[in-house]
């Protein structure tokens, strides 16, 4: 049986703050299999970006990463920075939300695409140039010769994002982490980039971890999705199952706003609470303040991430479980409450 490409065990990210430690991510575990496209969905403050960046130990100096991240069997969190650099770019590529902050303003984009190839593969600049031109044209950039000589500020938002994607793909990584790749773009451009990612997904054998606040974008591209809330994974499952039958009340609130959701909407009375510091974390379920179905046990202890039903399959080799972190499903008694309110 095939081994997972990435295995994350009990990952935790803490940020040091004036007021003490702020737990951005608390004990999340998941696997990504080769060629799989997985979505990581959550709203601002859910810890999704911290979680994805910590996979490469890219969080800021104030962040402390705990747990284990196995990439192809190697725990990359224990690697020294020198060896970690070999993973970044070569094995794992990253696309960021706002390309402008991650592109070097004083280098031409050509140099920025070629540099990692020259460094990781030890090929000549001429060879790197050929591949860079190929990549850019693959990304739908027409006059790639000219673009290579331009600087980041000369490019429009859509082109910049395409350049960023070419950079991430330059060394044919085996895993691509895409952190909100379409969020900063206009609607019609978002669509172009989604189409582009879909094409990449079909053409290359790499696995993708798509991080987004937008379940609709994830639905366009992913096989499987993990929902995060308050630094925890609250639900995982196949994308179709999640849309057809969201189990966690939070997932349900995300799915309900979709134009394709056909069931009766529950209403979430609560407000997005700005809870982030340790002192504010409630005892019990993190979602209790916003949950319309809160009961006494939700306030007592935090529910665990419980496997529901049997295994699901993607393709014919990867298996996964449907999981949910909610008291309603803790006892294994799967009573579905489908009556319209």
């Amino acid at each position: 049986m095939e081994k997972p490409l990435l295995e994350v065990k009990d990952l935790a990210v803490n940020f040091k703050r004036e007021e003490g430690f702020f737990k951005a991510v608390e004990g999340i575990s998941f696997k990504i299999w080769p060629r799989e496209v997985v979505g990581l969905v959550g709203e601002s403050g859910s810890g999704k970006t911290a979680a994805s960046l910590s996979l490469l130990n890219l969080t800021s100096s104030r962040g402390k990463v705990g747990g284990e991240v196995f990439f192809d069997g190697v725990n990359i969190l224990t690697l020294p920075e020198r060896k970690l650099k070999k993973f970044r770019g070569r094995q794992i590529g990253v696309i960021f939300q706002e390309p402008m902050t991650f592109l070097n303003p004083v280098l031409t984009i050509g140099v920025q695409i070629m540099e990692p190839m020259v460094e990781h593969w030890k090929i000549s600049w001429g060879q790197a140039r050929e591949r860079a031109l190929y990549l850019l044209s693959e990304m739908g950039i027409k006059d790639s010769e000219r673009r290579m000589k331009e600087y980041p500020h000369q490019l429009s938002g859509g082109i910049r994002q395409r350049v960023m994607i070419s950079m991430a793909l330059a060394c044919s990584p085996r895993l691509l982490i895409a952190d909100e790749p379409t969020t900063a773009l206009d609607v019609t451009l978002q669509y172009q980039i989604i189409e582009l990612l879909r094409r990449i997904r079909e053409k290359t054998p790499m696995a993708i971890l798509l991080v987004s606040h937008d379940l609709e974008v994830v639905r366009e591209l992913c096989d499987r999705v993990m929902i995060m809330y308050g630094g925890r994974i609250v639900e995982t499952g196949g994308i179709r199952e999640i849309f057809k039958d969201p189990l966690h009340p939070y997932t349900r609130s995300l799915v309900e706003v979709s134009p394709s959701f056909e069931r009766v909407a529950w209403r979430l009375p609560g407000e997005d609470a700005p809870f982030s510091y340790q002192s504010n974390i409630p005892a019990g379920c993190r979602f209790q303040h916003r949950c319309s179905r809160v009961s006494r046990e939700c306030k007592g202890a935090e529910p665990s991430l419980k496997e529901i039903g049997g295994k699901g399959w993607i393709g014919n080799s990867f298996s996964f479980h449907r999981q949910v972190r909610c008291w309603k499903y803790q006892e294994g008694a799967l009573e579905k409450d489908e009556k319209p309110l």
Partner: peptide
């Protein structure tokens, strides 16, 4: 029409033709 096409999974438009825009503003 392109704006409406860009909305993913719109039932009303699923069977109609999609308009995908090239380029940028």
């Amino acid at each position: 029409r392109a704006l409406i096409s860009a909305v993913p999974h719109r039932k009303a438009l699923r069977n109609k033709e999609k308009f995908i825009l090239e380029g940028e503003v």
